[in-house]
Every structure is written in structure tokens, then in C-alpha cells.
Nucleic acid binder design. Sequence first.
RNA 1: CGGAGCGUAGCGCAGCCUGGUAGCGCACCUGCUUCGGGAGCAGGGGGUCGGAGGUUCGAAUCCUCUCGCUCCGACCA
Length: 445
Amino acid sequence: MRLSRYFLPVLKENPAEAQIVSHRYMLRAGMIKQQAAGIYSWLPLGFRVLKRIEQIVHEEQQRAGHIPLLMPTLQPADLWRESGRYDDYGQEMLRIRDRHDRDMLYGPTNEEMITDIFRSAVGSYKQLPLTLYHIQWKFRDEVRPRFGVMRGREFLMKDGYSFDLTREDALHAYNRHMVSYLRTYERMGLTAIPMRAASGPIGGDNTHEFLVLAQTGESEVFYDEAVTELTLGNRKVDYDNRDEVAAICDEFTAPYARTDETHDPSVFETVPEARRRVGRGIEVGQIFYFGTKYSDSMGATVVTPDGSRVPVEMGSHGIGVSRLLGAIIEASHDDKGIIWPEGVTPFHAGIVNLKQGDGATDSACEALYGALQARGLDPLYDDRDERAGAKFATMDLIGLPWRITVGPRGLAANKVELTCRRTGESEEMSPEAAVAKLAEIYEGR
RNA sequence: CGGAGCGUAGCGCAGCCUGGUAGCGCACCUGCUUCGGGAGCAGGGGGUCGGAGGUUCGAAUCCUCUCGCUCCGACCA
């Protein structure tokens, strides 16, 4: 993309309403625009990142064997009357009436609807296991939205629903989700720690929240530092192998890691003092096994091998897709702006032309731009007629992980400068070498 | 929903107390100079002061109502 033809409305000054760093930078970098309290337009740069995150979530869900579909944002109230939640949910649920006076709602979640889909099409244990998911906009009419996309009213969420015959099968689905989530967050450059969560009124015994450590996090967290050092890396995982999947879950849940809701000081004391940490975290996902709550009340049953009929064992598993942008920025920024992890960056690299209009630099930049694209990369070429300082400031703000600086001085020796946003380190090399290095960095991503 | 505050140009703000025909910085447009970390000079465009009603000769300013947004608290992916 050529910046001169793009739509990137960056702000030099901080908007007054933004309190936390991710909100400030998302506004300043021209990623979002607030349209009402907790409701945002996604401008081109923000939209790109949102789509990258969404893509990673899709890939990892499907790798785990989960099947995508898409349910509507608006739902009929009757489904929710069946489960009893129409009355339970309270003011957070946005209720709407259509022209025929039918009660509708803007879905805050989809358990009822997915259960309805399931019961109308599945009747036998032979069709299990099944996990269906979608990535769809949700609405929760929060009393007090804040922190930009971290706590909006409208938000994009991946929610998946597992259906199994037995509790044991359902726990495998639970574990499968845990591992797929670990991989998902890792690909986004995040350390998200699974922490035992409070089961709440639904009463399921198995639920974990995934927390990204950040000073601005909403929840206080207590953990063994050892948990932050665990990674999946390039491990191959066979998601059908129960023991393997369970072993990974054991590995990642063995060190103490809890939110204030489930924190147990007496257990925490058993962690060696040098490794005990208290911090704050941003919740970016939750997995939940809840058994037959909805299948019971809504009649989602299957016939078992012995001919009897039982309600299916269910779980629901969510990732806060739009919230992740905020979480990633909270976890990865400096005083100049955002620092995108390579896995989610809106553009792979920025090209800064230091002397727009100079024949040699212009053509060198054009050549680089074409060469990067030929290698399958997506560069942002700052071809505006701006001074160097302004171009650098913009690049730093929008946080592309790599920058190629092209000026007449370096070009005289056939050199451009490749700069890492995260470390600030620069290296001079030929344009060809810069392209080759970037291609190598992004290989496999 | 309890408490506090703010709506004046695209963004950040002053002006309001003490009514008298709206201002500053950034951004934008034109020209010249400048050109490796948000340039300088000169000129220029842009605002029914959130909305409605009221008081007054006269309202951004005072009064009433209303809408929107923000912060603290309770609540939440």
C-alpha cells in the first residue's frame, strides 16, 4: 500500500477521552473512531489487524477440528425464554421489538441459538463429537463502557460450542480448546496464562480464563513465574490424542495461576517465594464445561448406543477478538507508539523514502516495494512529500515491526537501513539483502 | 445505577465567574525557503459555541429542560 493513497488519519495529539495506552494509540494511529459509547468504527489500519487476528483464530480452531459457521446478531427472544435467560440476563441485554411487535435481542452470546441448531439436526451419538464456532459481533449494554475496544459494548468474539456424549468426551473438548487457545495467543505474540476461574452461578466445575499480563489489567492475578516461561513453540499436536492434549493442559496448569476470585493464599504460599508474582491481567478468553444446562432445558438430546436418550454434554469457549487488539497493544508498546508482533502486524514492513521526488530514491523505493510484494509480503510505502521526522514518527506510532529507510546518502553506496521497531537497532545492507532478510523473518507466518 | 465533570473549527484548549457581534496551538490550503527524527516565514479558508426553551436592548457567557461523552465506584468477554 502506498501511504499517499491510503486512509490513515493519525493524530499528533492525544484525544482527551482516552485514558489507557492502547486506547490512546488506537485513536492516534487512526485505527478506530468512536461512534457512541463503547461502539467503534474500524478504520482501515485497525480493520487490517482485526482481520489478521480473526484469521489466526480461524486457523487454529480449524486445526483443532472445530467447524466454522455464522449465526445472526439478532435473535428471537423465545429461544431465551426456553433457557430462562431472557429474564435472568438483565439490562446488559439489548432488547429490540420488530414491526410485528415480536421481542428480539442483539445477542450477547449464542448458547441458546446453537443448541437450537443442534437439536434440530442431531439425534444420534454417531454424529458426535461436534464443535461448532463462529466469529460474530456481540452486544452487551455495559453500564460503563471504557478503555476503548477493551471494554466496548459492541465487540467481536469467537464463541465455540462443544457437543459430546459423555463427560469424559466433553472434557477432551475442553482440553482441546485450551491447547488451541495457547497456540492462538502464542501466534499473536502474547503470553496468555490459563488461570482457574470462578465457575459462577452456572455451576460447572471446569473453567479457565486466559489472562494477558499487563499493568492496566482489570483483574488482579497471582501466579508462579514458572508459568510465564512455558511455550508450545513448534510442537506438533494431535488434537485427537486425548492423553497428549491432556498432558499439555497439565503442563500449563500445573504452576499456580489464579485470579483474585479463586486465589487461595495457603496454596500460593507453597510456591517458592522467589517465583511468587502478583500482577494484573487482561482477560482475553475463557473456556467452560457446563454439562447439560442448556441441553436439558432446551431438549437437545441424542440416542446412545444402548438406545436410550440423553441430553448432550456441552461446553462453551470464547476468545475476545476485538479486545485482543487492546491487549496486544497494552503488552507491546513504548512511548513512541505501538509495537506490533509480526504475527498480527497490519503491514509487514514500512518503507520510508527520505527524499520524495529524488529520482534515485524514488526508484529504489519502488523497486523495494515491488520486490517485497513479489515475496508475498505486504509493505506500507510512505511516499508522501513529508520530512523525514514526520515519516519516522508515523511509522513508530503505527508500530510496523520493520522499517526500511531509503535515502540518497545510503543509496550512493547501494545501502538501505533496516530497523527493528522493538529494539530500535538498525543495520545497513543492500536493498536485496533487506528483502531477503524480511522474507526470512516472515517465513511460515 | 450512585458520585463527579465536560460539550466552543478535524484534534487539543482559552474565553463563561463580572453578558456587548468568538480566540490560541496543531492540522488544512497557497507561495517561498527548508529537507535523516513531527521545519521556518508570509498569506488564507473553516465554528448556527451539543440541542430546545427562557431572561435581556443584547447570551458561548445567566436560568430551566434535554441529549451526548468522560472519570471514580458497583458490574462485566
